[in-house]
Simulated assay, not measured.
Amino acid sequence: MSAIRQYLPAALLCATCLAHGATPEACQGTVYLTLDTGNMRHAEAIATILDKHQVKATFFVAQEKTLRGDHALDASWGDYWKARVAEGHAFGSHTWRHGSFRQDEADGRVTYRLMDGTHARLDAAQVCAELKAADTQFQALTGRPLDPLWRAPGGRTTPLTLKAARACGYRHVHWSAAGFLGDELPSHTHSNAMLLERALARIRDGDILMAHLGIWSRHDPFAPMLDPLIAGLKARGFCFARVPTP
Rank of each mutant, 00 (worst) to 15 (best):
P148W: 02
D183E: 10
P145D: 00
D183W: 11
G155T: 06
D183C: 10
L146W: 03
K163L: 14
L162G: 02
T157P: 10
T158S: 13
G182K: 10
L181S: 07
T142Y: 11
H172S: 13
R166I: 00
P153E: 02
P153S: 06
L162K: 12
L181A: 04
W175P: 00
H172Y: 06
W150I: 02
G179F: 03
D147V: 00
G143K: 11
A167V: 06
A177Q: 14
A177T: 14
R166E: 15
G155S: 08
L181N: 09
G182S: 11
L162W: 04
A165P: 12
R171D: 13
L160I: 12
R171W: 04
G154F: 10
P148F: 01
Y170N: 05
S176F: 03
T158M: 11
R144A: 08
G179N: 03
V173S: 01
R156C: 02
W175K: 01
T157W: 08
G143V: 13
H174N: 10
A178G: 00
G155A: 04
P153R: 05
A152Y: 10
G182M: 10
L146D: 02
Y170P: 10
A152E: 12
H172R: 01
H174T: 12
R144H: 14
R156Y: 06
D147W: 02
P148E: 01
D147H: 09
L181H: 07
T161C: 08
R156M: 14
A164Q: 13
R171L: 05
G179K: 06
G154A: 06
D147C: 00
A167N: 13
K163G: 07
R144S: 07
T161H: 11
C168P: 12
R144T: 15
C168L: 07
L181I: 10
S176R: 05
R166S: 14
G143R: 13
K163D: 14
V173G: 01
F180H: 13
K163Q: 15
W175Q: 02
L160T: 15
A164L: 12
R156G: 02
S176Q: 02
G182T: 09
Y170M: 08
P159D: 04
H172V: 00
G179T: 03
P159L: 05
K163C: 01
